[in-house]
Design a protein around this nucleic acid. Sequence first.
DNA 1: ACTAATATCTCGACCTTCAAGATATTTTCT
DNA 2: AGAAAATATCTTGAAGGTCGAGATATTAGT
Lengths: 167, 167
Amino acid sequence: MSSHQDDPTLDPQEQFTSLMRGLGTRTILHQQNVAASLGLYNNDFISLDILRETGPITAGELSKKTGLATGSITSLVDRLEKIGYVRRQNDPNDRRRVIIVPEYESKEEIRNTYEPLHKAMLNLASSYTPEELALISQFIGNASTVLEEQIQHLSSTTRSKSSKTTR
Amino acid sequence: MSSHQDDPTLDPQEQFTSLMRGLGTRTILHQQNVAASLGLYNNDFISLDILRETGPITAGELSKKTGLATGSITSLVDRLEKIGYVRRQNDPNDRRRVIIVPEYESKEEIRNTYEPLHKAMLNLASSYTPEELALISQFIGNASTVLEEQIQHLSSTTRSKSSKTTR
DNA sequence: ACTAATATCTCGACCTTCAAGATATTTTCT
DNA sequence: AGAAAATATCTTGAAGGTCGAGATATTAGT
């Protein structure tokens, strides 16, 4: 993987999408590596990441966001609770619900594992002027929004085609 | 996930890393959705993506790049070969080796599934001036390099700590 | 030739994931 | 208020991917 698809023969826009795809592939591989080095399963780690971003949410919401079945969430939360990364909290207003509260602020392991990437990204950021960084940040936000819309679209269309043939 | 961590109280650099992390989370969730909508397992789809980028590689190289055990690669390639996404080719110079050749150019399904994202990304690209897009593209390439280095670092340090306690 | 190194495959064990049903709680309707 | 429907999570058993170790085949080194 020496060249990151920076094929100069492509027109700028196609080159851009190609680069974005390469970034996506590496993002996924990196995430899998981080999860493995922490001794976590991928979905467990992704769930922690979602919880970090959203704060405490119910088991059902986590099921929707991850796309996992509710039964899978139960055992996933069991695992995370056992190692102290989250805890279950009852909702006083609706006693059916279980709120999952992230508890890994104290856990240094996750922060330590992410620290090298964080530093490297800060270092990358510092190589740009404030104006450039503002543009890049604005772009990342837009790209996130695009992805979020795509996820919505995909998960809605997938649910309708229940007549899967092979596999 | 209404706000993409665009917390204005953070300093610009921390805001940037926060945005990058959000982009990563969404990238992973999107990838899982795409794989599911194609009826593929995550690692199968990731492997296709790697093959698309690298071209034909051996089973061992794919094992290294994905981090999967060689035994897993065997069944993974079995699955992909059965549905016609790849084929096995013998290396005439070294008859132990098995080269995995991507065959999904003809398969429209993958392209169709990625088409909406591709279009949306092209649309996003067109909202920037050529100079801005050049800066963004250059940044994405740098970010990819950073991630690649992190993956290298993680996979080398993980292999050494074979004394995993729990799980 | 013989040994070591390399590359892939086979096999059994483990464990996540899923789907469906069970349980508990809340909401709606009469 | 009381019953039925809807909601939220958990339990259970089956299915199947992943891993690790050993097996097999091939190549490289002495």
